[in-house]
Design a protein around this nucleic acid. Structure first.
Lengths: 127, 127
DNA sequence: TATTGACTTGGAGCTAACTCTAAGTGATAA
DNA sequence: TTATCACTTAGAGTTAGCTCCAAGTCAATA
């Protein structure tokens, strides 16, 4: 697979993919004889993994550390577990924030909706 | 309320609060005769609102726009509703990403846990 | 009265995560 | 064989969102 195909498949720019490789977030992608990246399944799996983690907001540096431990093999299992647990806690916190904000947005959207429809005439809104 | 108190109450740095005021995310805070910020309830409500939105990841520019519409009054209700709906969609998308990632983290944490405890000996892990 | 310490301002500096540029290579179409 | 086009590299530039700095003011304390 060329970088163009992978870029389309995972909706990441070619620059971003090259950046991830340069930073060691994904293992070095194999090349053709003429030096062009030729993504195999393993490369794709890594990209998919990193994209998933990044989309949820995990930091590049944290992912780098995880990948570094991963390549060191079995004896880093405990460290890796701790790292992932920490990130899980962060995500749970984020989830909470988002839910809180969603409730608030829903309240306001509903309020505006009632005002639009003329159901509600009084209108002294706090932030 | 002084900026120091507000900073502690909402867990925002004084710099951040001043930045939000400068950018127009919160209305201009009243001052004492000697020019020192004296936060009233309204100021606090705004700060609390902005903090909530920022914690969920809404962008400064979007919040600026919302605040701008807010001050224009009733006839921007429809626009405001649309803006908030768009942000709600973004949050729902984020929520989905986070849930997906949480599942993946849980799977891995559990795997590492089993390896640690010796329940699982085979160990050919993909990213 | 001198000093301390919390505040004020405008503006410069910083970090994360890309994103873009320039200069170059190699395979294919005209 | 010339031109086109997708790719390569190292490294510079950009953006969002703070964060820090310098110089100054003011009220309260030693």
């Amino acid at each position: 697979m060329t970088i163009a195909e992978v870029s389309k498949k995972y909706n990441l720019t070619q620059d971003t993919i090259r950046y991830y490789e340069k930073e060691g977030l994904i293992p070095r992608v194999p090349r053709t004889e003429s030096g062009i990246r030729n993504f195999d399944e393993n490369s794709c799996n890594w990209i998919e993994f990193i994209k998933c983690m990044r989309d949820a907001g995990l930091e590049i540096e944290v992912l780098k550390e995880y990948v570094r431990l991963f390549w060191q093999g079995k004896n880093t299992v405990t460290e890796r577990k701790q790292l992932l647990e920490k990130q899980r806690n962060k995500l749970l916190e984020k989830q909470k924030n988002i839910n809180e904000t969603l409730e608030r947005l829903n309240y306001k959207i509903n309020l505006y909706d009632e005002i639009e429809k003329g159901i509600r005439k009084d209108f002294t809104e706090k932030p």
